[in-house]
Structures are given as C-alpha cells and as structure tokens.
Design a protein around this nucleic acid. Structure first.
Lengths: 119, 119
DNA sequence: GTAAACAGTGGAGCGCGCTCCAAGGTCAAG
DNA sequence: CTTGACCTTGGAGCGCGCTCCACTGTTTAC
C-alpha cells in the first residue's frame, strides 16, 4: 500500500505518516520508483498509536515500546512481560484519573469552588 | 504571597506561574511596588491544574473551566453541573484507557505483536 | 502528448508549554 | 551605602507534533 491509501485508511495525513516514519514509529520499504510501500497491518498499528497518543503517551514512548516488541525474543513470555509493563502504566493513569474524579465529585457535592479567590 | 513563595509551595517555576497568569489560569493583584500578590488558595488550585494537565487536559481547557466557575452563579446546583460535566470528560478518558488496557491484555495473552510487520 | 493525480525531498512555520536571558527596579541586612 | 535576594518586563529559544509550501519526479487517464 502506498502512502495515500494508508493516509485514507488510517485517517492520518501523508505528512503525519512521513513524520511518524522519521520518528521510528513506522517502517516502510521503497518501490523501485522511490515510493514508500506499507504493509497492511500498518493500519491497525496506526490506530493503536493514535489511541495511545490521545491518552497521553508521547510518540517517543510509543516508538520505544514498538522497538522493544520488534527486538523482543519471540517467546510469548517475553511479549507478555512487555504488555504487562504497558498495562501497569495504563493502570497508573487510570488511578490518577480516579483520584481526580473523586476530587471533582467531592467538590461538586460541597460546592467548594476549587479556584483562586480574589485577594 | 509573592511569586517566589508560591513557586516554592506549588513546586512550579516563577516563569511557569507568570506564564499561567498570561493564559488566564491564575489571577493576582499588584502591590504598590508592582510585585504580584497571590491568594493562599492559589496553592491547591495550582495542584489541581497540574494534575488535570498531567492527565491530558490542555491549559486552555483548564483555564476555560476555571473561568466558567468564576462566572457561574453561586448556586450549588450550577457548580454541581459544571463539575458533573468535567467528571463526564474524566469518565470518558477512563473508558478509553480501559479499552486500551483490554487491547493490550488480549495481545499479551495471544502473543500478537501489535506492530508493523516487514513487507 | 498532455493533464491530473499521485509520489518524493527539504525547509519554514506554528501552537503548546514552557525555560532562559538581559536589563533593570525594590527592599532588608550589615 | 553597598550587597544580595527578590521582583519586573520583554524577547529569544526549545522540544513536541505536526502542517504547509515549493519544487521535482512518476503514473494514469484521456
């Protein structure tokens, strides 16, 4: 698949895809004419990237995770460990959100404005 | 309280605090000598700002929320509505994280690499 | 054969969220 | 009266995550 099709299927711009490639988030090989060729599973991968990114992971972190996966020995155990690590990060984020939510809920009940007062 | 004390108590830099003020996240009045004076509750407010920010809210969004609170009629009902709105946003974020977590967990079990393959 | 649609590169620019710096005013201690 | 800590206001710069642009090459359709 060439970049235009990947752009359409992933909902990203061509520029964003090229940018991701420079950041090591995506690999391609080149056709004889110099055009990038992407594998079909770049589409779900990019969907994952966007989700992770929207949830506050930096592109560098996502790329590092992907690189670890590529370099991991192909045992299910090693992969599981990597995912477990990532899941722990997600869980931590969820806990923080839970705390923030509780704080908001509490103030909603008490009517405490949670804001800088005059003077 | 002057900016140095607020910086120390909030763990932020003076520059960051001045920057927040330009973005409408924080108010101060000026002493006759031109120094900024902050209220004591700027400290918990900044703690809230940092938490919200770390969880993926932009400064603009946080400032907008703060402004709404300042402009809200001072009824408990109105404030509750504002907090309920914010809580809904937090809940949505948590749901997304739950989905991402599940996706990760599933792939950890199946050993599916979740990455762009060669070719 | 030509036009349109696609691809490539390099570089500038931009919004966000700051940090750092220079030049200067204020104030308390010695 | 100087020293030093603190404050002020610009303005430049920076890492992130792109976008946009100019210019060029390739492929496809008529």
């Amino acid at each position: 698949m060439r970049i235009g099709e990947l752009a359409e299927r992933s909902g990203l711009s061509r520029d964003a895809i090229r940018f991701y490639e420079t950041r090591g988030l995506l690999e391609s090989h080149r056709s004889p004419n110099g055009y990038r060729e992407f594998a079909a599973d770049a589409v779900p991968w990019l969907a994952y990237v966007r989700t992770a990114q929207r949830l506050g992971f930096t592109l560098a972190a996502i790329a590092a995770h992907g690189a670890e996966l590529r370099e991991a020995p192909d045992s299910a155990a090693a992969l599981s460990a990597l995912f477990a690590e990532k899941i722990a990060v997600v869980d931590a984020k969820m806990s923080e959100l839970a705390v923030l939510r509780e704080e908001l809920a509490e103030r909603a009940v008490t009517g405490c404005p949670l804001r800088p007062e005059q003077q």
